[in-house]
Write a protein that binds this DNA or RNA. Structure first.
Length: 295
DNA sequence: CATATGTCCTGAGAGC
DNA sequence: TGCTCTCAGGACATAT
């Protein structure tokens, strides 16, 4: 489930192709005889895509939320969208049916970049400048989770009646946060995932903002999370390490790492699992006791 | 308009 | 053993 940290790790893993010329591209899945898998979305059609990519120079590599964007000297942008199981792998062509797309480079340290995708929910798409602006412009994608300011966060979230966990997943509100990191962020911030945005006190947005940065930056340092299915890998096909630092995700029934007392709970919000500590993340503040100063 | 739900896809694992 | 079923959650389409 590549989210911001995993996609940022992919971007860094291929950044040495910046300035390099695409010698050729290929579509291994389409060329293999295995008709078992559905094809991923490739736009435009492979034949036309190859014409527009061949001999183009990559001028820069950006991340757009959970997507990797290669800017070309033609002003086109090649966008990889991994969704659930997509990966960008470097060199060693993995010899299996899930390799969907490849780029070859003649010079530089990286000879090949591969787009691999088991479930095939992801896509490889080439956009003109104009297309990119309409498909992935500021109206479709909110500020990046690592760049958004406290005020932007508050302005975009606090009017909403949605639960904070559900709102954090909305890429139009803020780009890059997915199901795993939303739970992690809210646990660090001490906010109940079902708390409605419009009932979150003004000052708490600063806490949430800080938690977003802290969780995502640490996850990037550990090169993302490889879950028990082992799917996610960095560009060298190595597992991420942040799963060893998860506070709540997939830890239902285990003691909360903060209070070391209550057990992590799992609930479902918008058909997705949410994990939290009922003690550290209260929906309402504990009732004030009149007897606390009794001595 | 805001918000909620359904859909796609594959492999793993459960249950019988 | 081998079948059916459920689940995982990215983004988007459709419904309320």
């Amino acid at each position: 489930m590549p989210e911001l940290p995993e996609v940022e790790t992919m971007r860094r893993g291929i950044r040495k192709i910046t300035g390099r010329r695409i010698h050729d591209v290929c579509f291994p899945q389409l060329e293999s005889k295995s008709r078992r898998l559905k094809s991923i979305t490739i736009l435009p059609q492979p034949k036309r895509l190859r014409i527009r990519l061949k001999n183009r120079v990559i001028t820069s590599i950006d991340r757009l939320g959970k997507r990797v964007a290669l800017r070309l000297d033609s002003k086109d942008t090649l966008v990889f969208e991994p969704r659930m199981t997509g990966l960008l792998l470097v060199n060693d062509p993995p010899d299996d049916e899930y390799v969907r797309f490849g780029m070859e480079f003649v010079d530089g340290p990286i000879r090949f970049v591969w787009y691999w995708d088991r479930r095939g929910l992801g896509s490889v798409r080439l956009f003109s400048e104009k297309q990119l602006a309409t498909v992935l412009g500021p109206n479709q994608l909110g500020p990046d989770a690592l760049l958004i300011s406290v005020d932007q966060l508050r302005q975009r979230f606090s009017p909403s009646r949605r639960a904070i966990k559900v709102a954090l997943l909305d890429q139009k509100a803020v780009a890059g946060i997915g199901n795993l990191y939303a739970s992690e962020i809210l646990h660090l911030a001490g906010i109940h995932p079902e708390k409605q945005c419009n009932r979150i006190p003004h000052a708490n947005w600063q806490v949430i903002h800080a938690a977003i940065r802290e969780v995502l930056e640490k996850a990037i340092r550990y090169e993302g999370s490889t879950l028990s299915d082992g799917t996610y890998r960095n560009s060298l096909n190595k597992t991420g390490k942040y799963q060893n630092h998860h506070r709540v995700y997939n830890r239902a029934g285990q003691p909360c790492p903060r209070c070391r007392d209550a057990l992590i709970r799992r609930i479902v919000q918008a058909q997705r699992s949410t994990f939290y500590c009922g003690k550290c993340q209260r929906k309402r503040l504990p009732a004030k006791s009149a007897n606390t100063e009794n001595a």
